[in-house]
Simulated scan of single mutants.
Amino acid sequence: MNRDIKILIADDHPMLLKGLLQEFKEQGYTQMLQAANGVEALELLVSEKPAIAILDIEMPILTGFEVIVKASQLSLPTKYIILTSHKEKGFIIRAKKLNISGYLLKDEPFSEVQNCIQSVYDGTPYFSKTFENVFQEQVAPAITKLNFLSPSERTILRLVAQQKSSKEIGELVNISYRTVQKHRTNIIEKLGLDANPDALLLWTKENRELLGSL
């Protein structure tokens, strides 16, 4: 394993940051950078161009995701690994959209962090088992169901997500209230939801990250 690569660790929890740096030092890594917030992380990415950046999601000023977006716009060579406590579906979807190289949970052993770094450095993405399970069991099926929606149904779904009523949707897209209701019924059926008035709105709230791909 190459321990001479330059690695940036960004986390706003001092004890965790200190612990990670100590682990890396004990394992023989020689080029470690640290940041306590998103702005510091971005500045180091630009100035130092580390091979790998390990980022927490929730940091002051800029989140880990925001750092990756801004850094990607600058075409930096760094590969990004998220190290977080979050395993909710929305975070998994966002990470996939950003095409990051790795996603680990903070309760993983340090050996997993090392495995991830080596895999990412060699050009192979590395995701925790929890990440893969959430994606395969929750995200992928939802994406498949969305693909069955017609263009009109996708438009209706986006407007439902904006909390528009059927009457308002009809006025916006110039169709009758009855047609909107028919579309809603079809969407509910295709998404496999319960036929109750709030089911569709609740689904859009739980899957808001997915709606950006429609």
Results as ranks from 00 to 15, higher is better:
Thr78Cys: 05
Ile52Lys: 03
Leu98Phe: 08
Ile175His: 12
Gln162Arg: 13
Ile5Gly: 07
Ser75Thr: 10
Ser101Glu: 11
Gln181Ala: 07
Phe148Ser: 15
Ser176Val: 05
Glu23Gly: 00
Glu189Leu: 03
Ser165Asn: 02
Ala10Arg: 07
Gly102Gln: 08
Ile169Gly: 06
Pro14Glu: 09
His86Ile: 07
Asn174Gln: 13
Pro77His: 02
Asp56Ala: 10
Lys164Tyr: 14
Val46Glu: 13
Thr179Arg: 14
Leu104Val: 03
Leu172Ser: 11
Leu202Val: 13
Arg94Gly: 02
Ile92Tyr: 07
Asn133Arg: 15
Ile117Cys: 06
Asn174Glu: 13
Ser152Asp: 09
Ala35Asp: 14
Phe65Met: 08
Ile175Glu: 13
Phe110Glu: 12
Ala95Tyr: 07
Val160Ala: 02
Lys70Thr: 07
Arg94His: 10
Ala41Lys: 08
Ala41Phe: 05
Lys106Arg: 15
Thr124Glu: 13
Tyr80Ile: 01
Tyr126Phe: 15
Phe110Arg: 14
Thr155Ile: 11
Leu16Ser: 14
Glu171Phe: 07
Ala95Met: 06
Phe135Tyr: 15
Val134Asp: 06
Gln162Ala: 06
Gly38Val: 04
Gly170Gln: 01
Ala35Ile: 06
Leu44Ala: 11
Ile57Val: 14
Ala10Leu: 02
Leu33Pro: 04
Ser111Tyr: 01
Gln31Asp: 10
Phe135Glu: 09
Glu132Pro: 02
Gly38Gln: 05
Ile93Gln: 06
Gly90Lys: 04
Thr130Lys: 15
Ala195Trp: 00
Phe65Leu: 05
Gly212Cys: 03
Val69Cys: 00
Ile187Pro: 01
Gln136Thr: 06
Tyr177Ile: 13
Gln181Tyr: 03
Tyr177Thr: 13
Asp122Cys: 04
Lys145Cys: 04
Phe131Gln: 07
Gln136His: 09
Ala199Gly: 05
Ile81Gln: 10
Arg208Asp: 05
Val134Met: 12
Leu42Ser: 10
Ile117Ala: 06
Leu210Pro: 12
Asn174Trp: 04
Ser150Phe: 09
Arg94Asp: 01
Gln73Ser: 02
Leu214His: 01
Lys79Ala: 09
Lys167Val: 14
Leu20Gly: 09
Ala95His: 10
Ser166Val: 00
Asp12Trp: 08
Leu214Lys: 01
Glu23Asn: 12
Ser176Glu: 09
Phe110Cys: 11
Glu112Ile: 02
Ser128Asn: 11
Pro14Ser: 06
Val67Pro: 00
Tyr121Arg: 03
Leu76Ile: 04
Arg3Cys: 09
Tyr177Phe: 15
Ala71Lys: 00
Ser111Arg: 14
Arg158Gln: 11
Glu112Pro: 04
Glu40Phe: 15
Phe127Ile: 12
Asn115Tyr: 01
Arg154Cys: 00
Pro77Arg: 00
Phe65Arg: 03
Thr63Met: 06
Ile5Ala: 14
Arg184Glu: 12
Tyr80Pro: 03
Glu206His: 07
Ile92Ala: 11
Asn37Met: 08
Asn99Val: 01
Phe65Ser: 05
Gly123Ile: 04
Asn133Cys: 02
Lys96Pro: 00
Glu108Ile: 02
Leu202Arg: 14
Leu159Trp: 03
Ile9Ser: 03
His183Gln: 15
Leu191Pro: 00
